[in-house]
Amino acid sequence: MFDGFLAPRYIGWMIDGLGVTLGLSALASVIALVLGFVLCVLRLSPSRPVAGLAAAWLSAFRNTPLLVQLFFWYFGVSALLPDSLMAWLNAPHRIGVEAFGAPWPPFEMLAGLLGLSLYSAAFMAEEFRAGIYSVAPGQTAAGRALGMTSTQIWISIILPQAVRIARAPLAGQVMNVVKNSSLTMAIGLAELSYAARQVETETFQAFQAFGLATLFYIGAVALIGGFSQLAWGRSSPPTGAAR
């Protein structure tokens, strides 16, 4: 069964796939972090309708399978859009000024990015919320006793500590984004898993194709782990008690 390693041409396909996986994951992680923070703030809003809506949104995205969400954005929503818009979305054109613009991404990429970002944002929102909850209530009380306004308390006391606590789980969520991006192969996005499957179909070298894909995923996730280690060092996050 093991008949040598993959031909260079197929390794090239896999590297192209890895590029798509990394690009998609990076974009989706940034969008999900920003959106997740916003959702967390809405979820903690003193206004009950706003907090309720945010809670409903979060549970909808957290409690349904990502695969179904991707099918919804790719097959479901595109069926509702007018034909002319779909034709425009699928046509090859460029974004931005000529020569500096990037090629327009295929609709598979847009739907995959949207689906992955919204799904991951819901999880990241909850990581932020967990971080905020783990700042001891005494911290807020101490701020008040010093005569700080509640905005000052949030910006100077709660958020810096919450982010420090949440950043490790958030890095874990970014790793999940990389792994979850493999599901976009179901909507035809040519990322790493899709490329591995394609190589396997052409070469019948299943072990080599999926083995290399596994190594690439491990490498990508290790990179995120290494980066977070470098950025934050080995210091353990505060436990909520004042230091």
Binding site: Y74, F75, S78, A79, D83, M86, A87, N90, P106, F107, E108, A186, G188, Y194, R197, Q198
Partner: peptide
């Protein structure tokens, strides 16, 4: 040609009807 691979023919046909291919 730009190829987009789907799990089966009905999925591919849905993509055609939606204008994705």
């Amino acid at each position: 040609a730009v190829l987009v691979a789907y799990d089966d023919t009905p999925f591919a046909f849905t993509a055609l009807r939606n204008g994705n291919v």
